[in-house]
């Protein structure tokens, strides 16, 4: 699944300026996370049509990029996330970052994962019978 990442300068209003554009373009955010460092931030999110939104953002002079991430459904119960991470760890795969959310219907939870070796991680999860999602039309 493709995730959009946007570089945010550390100043008041930089997050709002991205969000306000998305509102204007009627883009619904399906999942998001915000990473921060001492002087800049990275806003990561998943939308329905990432390629189009990326182009729109670039036209508006935002620094943005597409990243391939893995999205898996997990059981919304204790140990749900640990089992997925355990599978990757056993294969020596390291995780750059992840963010998770529960489905609105309460039927389960979802994890968006960024790993170092995408192909190997994908293969490993598929072999372990973990279903990967290709979109988030939840």
């Amino acid at each position: 699944m493709k995730q959009i990442s946007v570089f945010l300068e550390n100043r008041p209003g930089s997050l709002f300026s991205v969000l306000d554009r998305l509102r204007e373009w009627k883009v619904n955010l399906r999942a998001l996370s915000l990473a921060d460092t001492a002087d800049f931030g990275v806003l990561r999110f998943i939308v329905k049509d990432p390629q189009t939104v990326l182009e729109q953002l670039k036209n508006e002079n935002f620094t943005a990029t597409l990243t391939e991430v893995l999205t898996v459904g997990i059981a919304d119960q204790p140990g749900g996330l640990s089992s997925v991470v355990g599978i990757l760890t056993k294969e020596g795969l390291s995780i750059e970052y992840l963010y998770a959310f529960v489905s609105p219907e309460g039927r389960g939870a979802y994890v968006v994962l960024r790993v170092e070796d995408y192909d190997k991680a994908r293969h490993t999860l598929e072999n372990a019978g973990i279903p990967l999602l290709e979109n988030l039309s939840l």
Binding site: S5, T37, F40, V42, T63
Partner: peptide, 15 residues
Amino acid sequence: EISSEIFSDEVKSLE
């Protein structure tokens, strides 16, 4: 200013 071509969504590569 950083350009989109160098921007990686991984914080550590920017750092």
